Measured scan of single mutants.
Amino acid sequence: HHGSGALAALHADGPHAGLPVTRSDARVLIFNDWEERKRSEPWLRLDMSDKAIFRRYPHLR
C-alpha cells in the first residue's frame, strides 16, 4: 500500500489554513481522498498530475 498513512504538511493558519504546503503534500491528500472514494466509486481514476493539483489547490501554482 503505497501512500496510506502518509501525512501531508498543511498550512496551520492564514489564508491557506488546512491546505497542503507543497505539491508532494497535495499528492498525499489527493491519493488518500482517491483511496477513500474508490470504495464507493471503483471506476474513479487517480490523477496526481500537476494540472490536477493546480485545479484542486490553485494556491500551489
Rank of each mutant, 00 (worst) to 15 (best):
R23Y: 15
Y57E: 00
E36M: 12
A9V: 13
L46N: 01
R61P: 07
D47I: 03
D25H: 04
D33T: 05
H59K: 00
K38L: 07
D50Y: 06
T22M: 03
S4K: 15
V21W: 03
R45L: 14
N32R: 13
L60I: 02
R23N: 07
M48R: 02
L19D: 11
G14D: 03
V28F: 06
D33N: 06
M48W: 15
A8H: 10
V28I: 15
W43I: 04
R56D: 05
R37D: 15
G14H: 03
A17D: 04
L7A: 10
F31I: 06
E35M: 15
S24A: 14
A26F: 01
H59Q: 01
D33P: 01
L46I: 04
S4H: 12
K51P: 14
A6N: 10
G14L: 03
V28W: 08
P15L: 15
A17G: 04
E41W: 06
L46F: 03
E35C: 15
A9M: 13
P15K: 06
R56H: 14
H59V: 00
A12E: 10
D50K: 06
I53Y: 01
K38E: 02
E41I: 06
G14Q: 03
S49Q: 02
G3A: 11
R23D: 06
L44Q: 07
R23F: 10
S24N: 12
L44I: 07
A12D: 08
E35H: 13
P20E: 10
A17P: 03
G18V: 03
F54D: 15
A26H: 01
E36P: 01
R39E: 11
H16K: 05
I53M: 04
G18N: 06
R23P: 14
H59E: 01
D25F: 02
E36W: 07
A17N: 06
I30F: 13
G18R: 04
S49H: 02
E36K: 11
A12F: 08
F31K: 10
W43L: 10
S24I: 08
P42D: 04
G5M: 10
G18Y: 04
D25T: 00
I30C: 03
D47F: 03
S4M: 12
L10V: 10
L60Y: 01
N32T: 08
K38I: 13
G18F: 04
S49I: 03
V28N: 05
R61Q: 10
H16M: 09
R61T: 07
W43Q: 10
H59G: 01
L46A: 02
V28E: 04
G5Y: 07
R27D: 01
A26V: 01
T22E: 04
H59S: 02
E35P: 00
H59P: 00
S49T: 07
D47W: 02
H1Q: 11
A9T: 12
G14A: 04
D25I: 03
D47C: 06
P20N: 15
P42Y: 04
A9N: 14
L19E: 05
L19Q: 06
R27I: 06
V21A: 14
H1C: 14
I30M: 08
K38Q: 09
F31Q: 05
N32I: 12
H11F: 08
W43M: 09
H2T: 10
W43N: 14
L46Y: 15
S49D: 03
H2R: 12
G18W: 04
M48P: 08
V28Y: 06
M48F: 07
R61M: 11
I30E: 01
R56I: 10
L29M: 07
G5D: 08
S24L: 09
A12L: 12
D25N: 02
G5N: 10
E36N: 10
P20K: 01
V21Q: 07
L44S: 09
P15I: 07
T22I: 14
H1W: 12
Y57T: 00
H11W: 13
R45A: 14
R45G: 08
N32M: 13
R61H: 06
